[in-house]
Amino acid sequence: MTGPTHPGPDPAAPEGPAVAGLAREVEVLRRQVAELEPLPGQVGELGRLVGQLSETLAAVTARRRVPAAPSWLMAPTDPADIERLLGEVCGWVEVVFLRYPDGATALPQCWLWHPDVVEELLWLMHAWCAAYQGPAASVGAAGDWHDRQRPGVVARLRRSVGSCSVEAHQTRPGWSAPTGTPPPVPGVEHVELITRWWATDRDHTPPEPPTAAEPDGSTGPAGGGWR
């Protein structure tokens, strides 16, 4: 003999539709929650990207605030300014540049007589300050200074001054003493000719250089002139 049965809820009963509707709402909510579960991770990733962009913008802004390096070749003529520049360069050369063996061997005693050498060391000093101490100081900037900027200056000093010495700058019979006077700008006599061409006819073939007998460049050699 079997026991009594317990049938399920009668859909026709008044509470049946309400329960079914509640179940549907619960299912909808469950699906919505499932869809929202990845959201915290997405928000976190978005926050990370925004942080990176902010850091990048701050770094770019900081680099723009890095002061420009002064120029020895265009330095003011005030003796106090010159003394300050030389004092800074000499101090930095002693504590940084000469610590590198190749730098020490590339810098002759007569380096102060070579304006191009002073210019190189001046900007290299400011590049070092920007890489290590400036508002945009970074490991990457320091690496660039070591890997590219400093070796580049050393190589140029070797080519520029070579084995020059203080004695080479002393006026003595038989010596061709180097000077700090720059050579004349080559081709400067053609400025007027090039000015006319670049200002009025730059999309066409440039005029041929004038012969020695025609220094003004008015006509040029045979077959030359304007095209």
Rank of each mutant, 00 (worst) to 15 (best):
T211K: 08
I82F: 01
P14I: 06
T200R: 15
L98H: 08
A58V: 07
R31I: 13
P184D: 13
L121W: 02
P135G: 05
L107W: 04
V153M: 11
E55I: 02
T2R: 13
G223I: 08
G3V: 05
E15K: 00
W128K: 02
H204L: 09
T5L: 15
D116W: 01
G225P: 10
E192L: 12
P7V: 06
A127N: 05
P184K: 08
T2L: 14
D116Q: 10
Q109E: 14
L22C: 03
L107I: 04
C164M: 04
G87C: 07
A199P: 00
A20S: 10
L46T: 12
S138E: 10
L86Y: 02
S218W: 09
V153A: 13
S71I: 04
V28H: 12
P67V: 09
Q149F: 11
R172L: 15
D78V: 06
R64S: 06
Q133T: 07
E35I: 11
A213G: 06
E37D: 14
P135A: 12
D116A: 11
E35Y: 07
G217Q: 03
G47N: 12
V117N: 01
C129L: 14
I82T: 14
T211G: 15
S218A: 15
T200M: 10
L157F: 00
V33N: 07
W128L: 01
G91W: 05
P221S: 07
G180K: 01
G16N: 06
M74G: 03
E25P: 00
T200C: 10
W113Y: 13
V89N: 02
P183I: 04
L36Q: 15
I194V: 14
G217T: 05
P178M: 07
P9I: 15
R63M: 13
G87M: 07
C90M: 08
Q149H: 14
Y100I: 09
R148D: 14
Q109G: 15
V96T: 14
T5P: 03
G16R: 06
P76F: 02
D147L: 10
P9C: 02
P79T: 07
R48V: 13
A213I: 10
W226A: 11
V33P: 03
A68I: 01
A137W: 02
Q149I: 13
H126C: 09
D216P: 01
R64Q: 12
P4V: 12
G91E: 07
P215R: 12
T211C: 08
V188S: 15
P183F: 08
P178D: 08
L85R: 10
A155I: 00
E214A: 12
H169L: 02
V96L: 07
G143A: 14
E55Y: 00
T105F: 02
